[in-house]
């Protein structure tokens, strides 16, 4: 139910935060093995949530996004990198969008936090890719 259609999008901020926390528990729980399909659905919802302006929502969903992406990349580690390119590009665009000068300070702060979490969870599967995406200006 949590991942169907626009259910989450239409919920209150409180419910969106609670849902994020629930996904985070699932993602961190070693006893639960989420399938790739579910992980992709979680990632799609996370990208939607990252378009919001609430700092509390961004706080929880940046971690959900980075953990889900990390798990997807791990599951596809043996696949050719080209198959994951769209995921990486989407990730780069998400960070760029959140870092845009037109965004509020809160969102831009969370963009920095997102980059840190991508490193923490090895979400791009390769430090060199991470460097080429995010450390050019640093």
């Amino acid at each position: 139910m949590l991942l169907k259609g626009n259910w989450l999008k239409n919920q209150s901020e409180y419910m969106q935060i609670l849902t994020g926390e629930a996904f985070l528990i699932l993602l961190k729980c070693e006893q639960v093995l989420l399938t790739e399909r579910v992980l992709i659905q979680i990632k799609i919802e996370a990208i939607r949530m990252l378009q919001q302006w609430s700092a509390d929502i961004l706080e929880i969903w940046t971690e959900v996004y980075t953990m889900a992406l990390s798990e997807i990349v791990k599951l596809n580690r043996k696949q050719p990198v080209a198959e994951l390119e769209s995921l990486f590009l989407e990730c780069k665009q998400t960070v760029q969008k959140m870092s845009d000068r037109n965004q509020t300070i809160k969102v831009r702060l969370k963009a920095a936090s997102l980059v840190g979490q991508l490193a923490k969870y090895d979400s791009l599967g390769d430090p060199e890719r991470f460097k080429s995406f995010f450390l050019q200006k640093l």
Partner: peptide
């Protein structure tokens, strides 16, 4: 804002950091 720098540094390694 900079509290996540340590994650980035641990990830990219000593020289790059």
């Amino acid at each position: 804002m900079c509290s996540h720098l340590i994650h980035v540094s641990r990830y990219i390694g000593q020289a790059s950091s």
